[in-house]
Computed example of a mutant assay.
Amino acid sequence: MKNYSADNFLDKAYDLLSKYPLCDSCLGRCFARLGYKLENKERGKAIKISLILYLDKKIKDHQLEDLSQIKDILYNIGKDYSGIHEIYFTSEEFQQRTCYLCNSEIEEIKEDFYKKALTLLKKLSEENKKEIKYVLGVKLSDQIKELEKNFVFENGLIYYESMRNEIKREVGKQLANNGYSPGIDNPDIEIVYDLDTKNIYTISKKTRILYVYNRLSRRVTLSSWYSDNSLENSINAQIMIPFTEPSEVRILDEYPIILDIDKEKIQTKGYFMKKIHEISGREISFIMSTKPIKRTYKILYYSETEQKDSERIYNNIYQKIINAENFEDLKNKLKDINGEIISIDLISSEGKHKNLETKLNL
């Protein structure tokens, strides 16, 4: 692994931006241990401005024979710093690129987490008539974790800070500025932001209950963040889910859900839930990290042409079984169907979420 020191960090930044488009925050995070009390966004902006000045000087001093060799780095630095491109590449449109690490979404993620956490803390404080002590957590997708790990290792980034830490710190500052300071020593709850679903959930010290559920009606959401017509509002309980399907998909297989209420069975608003066992912190963390490795969907659709790879149900109505990794994968496969989709049902799945009672030794 190639190391570097503070006296050549600009060379390292030049090297990184020659290969990857990086937003201000993600570039600054590569040097997070340099410059105490600076935000990563400030670091990244300062580094990019320094590089722009350096490149402009090289051009003006006639030290660059071929200007085309710096076009990629200008694109990777970003649109906010495109003045030098406008001067030297007057006939070419600037090529906007998304950040390699966060897909240019990190500022939006911080703001979304902050707003949802603030709303939740206000609600909990009013209900409990006291200040809620909390810590923040961030659940990265497997893809981002692997991407970040490889990025750090391959580029020898000894001053790097994880995306998770940056998001938690910046959101915590915003919440503290609004009167809700984190209680790191003795928190009541952990508020976790899931980057995959853009939802928040809480992990508390008290025992919770693991259920498995089926969704028998369409367009009834789980979370009240998306709709008043939700399971959460219907049963007046906080819910935690490691994964789910879009609300238009019926879930006929058993998916895990964690609730803060204790009943043997719950049936309401299109959902049927069966109690599995009481669980606590260790079990909750394991469950929230599970997801299917394979999902099987039943597709009902209408087609005026004969479909040989599907089962005819009635006249022009056909049924087809499709295996997919997740719903995004399914959507890509649905493009091959020559007809109009009537309904989608999740009928089975495979993965660590199956037989949780045995895996957790409950």
Rank of each mutant, 00 (worst) to 15 (best):
T90N: 14
I184C: 02
T221S: 11
D61F: 14
I317F: 08
I266A: 00
N177W: 11
G35Q: 00
K294A: 10
K133F: 02
P182L: 11
L121C: 00
N316M: 01
I299S: 06
E93F: 10
A117Y: 02
L10I: 08
I52Y: 00
V171G: 03
A6L: 11
K133T: 07
N214V: 06
L231V: 00
I158L: 03
S25D: 10
Y134D: 04
K173F: 13
K12S: 01
Y314E: 13
G172W: 06
K263E: 13
L120M: 09
R282Y: 12
E170Y: 06
N323K: 14
I235G: 06
L222Y: 03
K359G: 09
A46K: 08
M273K: 03
E357A: 13
S82Q: 12
I47L: 06
L300E: 15
Q307A: 07
G281A: 13
T221E: 12
L360Y: 04
N233W: 08
K275F: 09
G44Y: 05
K149E: 13
R295K: 15
L175K: 07
S18V: 04
H85G: 01
E283D: 11
K116E: 05
H85N: 08
I184S: 00
D11A: 12
Y54N: 14
K133R: 03
E254K: 10
K145N: 13
N8Q: 06
Y159A: 06
D188L: 02
D142Q: 12
P187H: 00
S247G: 08
G156S: 04
V220R: 06
G44F: 05
I59M: 01
K173Q: 13
Y302I: 10
E170C: 04
M1T: 14
F113S: 06
C26G: 05
S223W: 09
K129F: 06
K274G: 03
I276R: 04
R97D: 02
A6M: 13
N177T: 12
I257P: 02
E161G: 08
E105Q: 15
L55V: 01
E264P: 07
Y180K: 04
N214D: 08
L120R: 12
E306W: 15
Y159L: 05
H353S: 04
N8M: 07
F31Y: 04
K57F: 15
E190I: 10
E340T: 13
H277V: 14
R215I: 07
I200G: 00
E107D: 07
L74V: 06
K45M: 08
E86L: 11
M273T: 00
H353L: 05
K110L: 04
K19L: 10
L34C: 07
Q319H: 11
K71M: 06
K291G: 00
S303L: 10
K335T: 10
L300I: 15
I77H: 05
Q267A: 15
V152L: 02
Y20G: 01
Y201F: 13
I287M: 01
E105F: 12
Q174K: 15
K333M: 11
E328V: 14
S285G: 11
K60E: 10
H353Q: 09
S230I: 03
Y318L: 01
E161W: 04
S223Y: 08
S181K: 15
N155A: 05
L252Q: 08
T221V: 08
N103M: 05
K352V: 03
